[in-house]
Design a protein around this nucleic acid. Sequence first.
DNA 1: GTCTATAGGTTGATAGAC
DNA 2: GTCTATCAACCTATAGAC
Lengths: 210, 210
Amino acid sequence: MPFSKHSAKQPARRGRPRSGGREAILAAAFELLVERGASRLTTREVATRAGVSEGSVFYHFTDRTGLLTAVIEDSLTALMEVSPSSQAQVAETLDALTSGIERFLDKALIVLIAAQSDAELRAGMAAFLLENDFGPHRGVEGIAGYLRAQQQAGLLRADIDPESVAMMLLGSLFLQVSMRQMVSEDYGGNLPGRSQVLASLMAMLTPAPQ
Amino acid sequence: MPFSKHSAKQPARRGRPRSGGREAILAAAFELLVERGASRLTTREVATRAGVSEGSVFYHFTDRTGLLTAVIEDSLTALMEVSPSSQAQVAETLDALTSGIERFLDKALIVLIAAQSDAELRAGMAAFLLENDFGPHRGVEGIAGYLRAQQQAGLLRADIDPESVAMMLLGSLFLQVSMRQMVSEDYGGNLPGRSQVLASLMAMLTPAPQ
DNA sequence: GTCTATAGGTTGATAGAC
DNA sequence: GTCTATCAACCTATAGAC
């Protein structure tokens, strides 16, 4: 698809052009989620940071929960387009594929965690994921698909289970990113990194020496 | 160590015996964390559920943050004693080891997630983990130690990297438990389960057919 | 250590002009 | 769509008696 964004697909907008207030609010809320955590996010501060009044926040999102729901669903929707399973077809190495997933997780985890602060948000997100058939199984499928292709080309051991390997690989990425984000930036140093895991895995995926 | 809990190690308590109020509050807070999420936990509701007055909560924990910090550190301290690395010496199969880790993660994730709702809690937990040299690297070490022992006994491929395999295995467990808890109970069905992953891994760990 | 009562402050949300 | 002004509710925290 050429002209990615600026394609003439959508009809010209009618009415008053968007002022960007809504987007500024969403961005500010996302920032605060990262910096302070969901419990410490107030509509007041979101408004201040977005450079709008608090009334605007409620105009656009009805209530605080509506705002957070929008942040979560917007982020996930944006991520769905760069989802691992859609990458898998183009990535030419496991290295490229997994580094893409790592970046993906970095953003997805923010909202996944934010949703955990409130049972209502959590349920809403679960429903959203279900409706859109979105979730880590897509990542597993993506990786497994790649592995299976390599396998059929005779480049990998024939007797391995692509799904299980994909689950372990995705899991190691998820654990690494989670710890960096949930504990501290440099906490990952304690754990085997992506390249080490990948190198070891590659060795295991090719036939072992007798 | 015999007589696990009821050993006579500790000197007899002096002074007024504990009434259990503190413990009831901690338990109630933990429950609410699971049911409603950290943002929706109020000191009022904690007190009600614990069957004490709100004043008691503040007497014991100074403030709301103090209460949550105590919940987090208490839970983690309890878990440190059944930490994977201490299990690794006794577990006789990867199956026993990983199912223990799964149960471990089920509890640990509750407080790990709760801490994410507030930057202050998050920082406190990070410091606590650092001080106690506690975290997933202990799990990796535990699994890797087990694998290395098996390897030296000639039961596993000699050319695999135990740390990387441990990271992947722990990662897959972490991912599975996270999704069950953060999305929905039966969400794990979409993903390869522990036994499937384990079976595939075992096949990979033993020398491949030529 | 636990209670009751209450103060104080913050916050989510609304109303109405522009 | 955005603003200002304001309210009502809630919730944390304190004081002081038992």
